[in-house]
């Protein structure tokens, strides 16, 4: 018994010796790498991971930036505030006993954003691919053309272009001036008409197809010319070649562009903010999700609610991205062998 105990003590001591020397070894092996990684790691922990957990917590509270001491736990109250109208509610009693109103604009902002994403992204990619194919010919001046077509993308995210866009599509703006010149009459103010306002924003997004075009162009250059030659010897016409060679071989690039653009489109903010004058436009026709989030959090100081909205946005993006990746198994081919 005593022998066993002393043996135990011995192993314990040697365990600590081993553990300490192991730690020293670990540090010696990894310290330099972690030194290089330190800024990123600190940034991740303090500015990403901690805020994520914090905002998840806030999303279950009625945290108000101007009165943080009045914060109460309200359970799923913020989530019901978003989706209450789905269940036909207009108000409900929160777990605090307080009466909460369902957000009357949330579903509108969601549908505006989904429309925007699902119309602008496909249009943008189709346009980008068409122009990339046009440029993928043995033509002089392609680098110059590519540069010109990239200009809208270069500038498109700026406040300057949003200001310009608002001027272009006004009732007495440039677009209507040109249209009147070619004989149209009775034209609407595109920005101020709820039927067209979102359309002008979609147009502004599609206009910026430059990045996708450059990525498609790089992808097209990877497709061996022999495939097309062999296909045309076999009698396949251009359309057939497009669907049997170009699309399948380009499918990984299409997937890549699709995911990047969807994630980006869900987060669009600046253009809607400037064109709508800091609000959601006429009848909230351009009330983008992020704009609504900003208004809730920073105009009304409802930061608990804004956090809940951010988490739902994250979930929506995650689900849609996952669906796109899942679906890719039947439309994306990697390599010719498959």
């Amino acid at each position: 018994m005593t022998a066993f105990e002393s043996l135990h003590d011995e192993t314990k001591a040697s365990f600590w010796v081993r553990k300490t020397s192991g730690m020293i070894k670990f540090l010696r092996r990894n310290a330099v790498a972690y030194l290089f990684l330190a800024p990123w790691l600190l940034g991740f922990l303090v500015l990403t991971l901690y805020p994520m957990i914090y905002s998840l917590g806030l999303s279950f509270t009625n945290y108000d930036f101007t009165q943080p001491n009045a914060t109460q736990w309200i359970g799923l109250g913020n989530y019901l505030k978003m989706f209450g109208s789905v269940f036909g509610l207009s108000e409900f009693t929160a777990s605090t006993g307080e009466l909460m109103r369902v957000d009357p604009y949330y579903m509108k902002s969601l549908s505006v954003t989904l429309t925007y994403v699902f119309v602008s992204v496909p249009l943008k990619l189709i346009f980008a691919l068409a122009v990339a194919m046009l440029m993928n010919q043995k033509l002089r001046g392609v680098p110059f053309y590519r540069a010109v077509y990239y200009i809208p993308t270069l500038l498109g995210g700026s406040v300057a272009i949003a200001v310009l866009w608002r001027k272009l599509f006004e009732k007495d703006g440039l677009i209507n001036g040109v249209l009147t010149g070619v004989g149209f009459t009775d034209l609407p103010g595109w920005i101020t008409n709820p039927n067209y306002a979102l359309g002008t924003l979609i147009l502004l997004t599609v206009w910026q197809f430059g990045s996708s075009m450059i990525i498609f162009l790089a992808g097209l250059k990877q497709i061996p010319q022999e495939y097309y030659e062999a296909a045309s010897v076999d009698g396949a016409n251009k359309v057939r070649q497009f669907f049997s060679i170009t699309i399948p071989l380009l499918s990984p690039v299409i997937l890549f562009n699709l995911v990047i653009q969807i994630i980006g489109a869900f987060q669009a903010f600046t253009q809607a903010y400037i064109i709508g004058g800091g609000k959601g436009g006429v009848l909230n026709s351009t009330l983008f999700y992020t704009l609504h989030l900003y208004i809730q959090g920073w105009t009304y100081h409802e930061m608990g609610y804004a956090s809940a909205m951010a988490w739902v946005l994250l979930l929506i993006i995650a689900v849609i991205t996952a669906v796109v990746f899942r679906s890719s198994s039947w439309w994306v081919s990697y390599g010719v062998g498959e």
């Binding site: 805020p51 994520m52 905002s55 994630i263 989030l293 959090g297």
Partner: peptide, 10 residues
Amino acid sequence: MLPGHVTLVP
């Protein structure tokens, strides 16, 4: 791929 909005408020 993370939308920045989830870290915005904190």
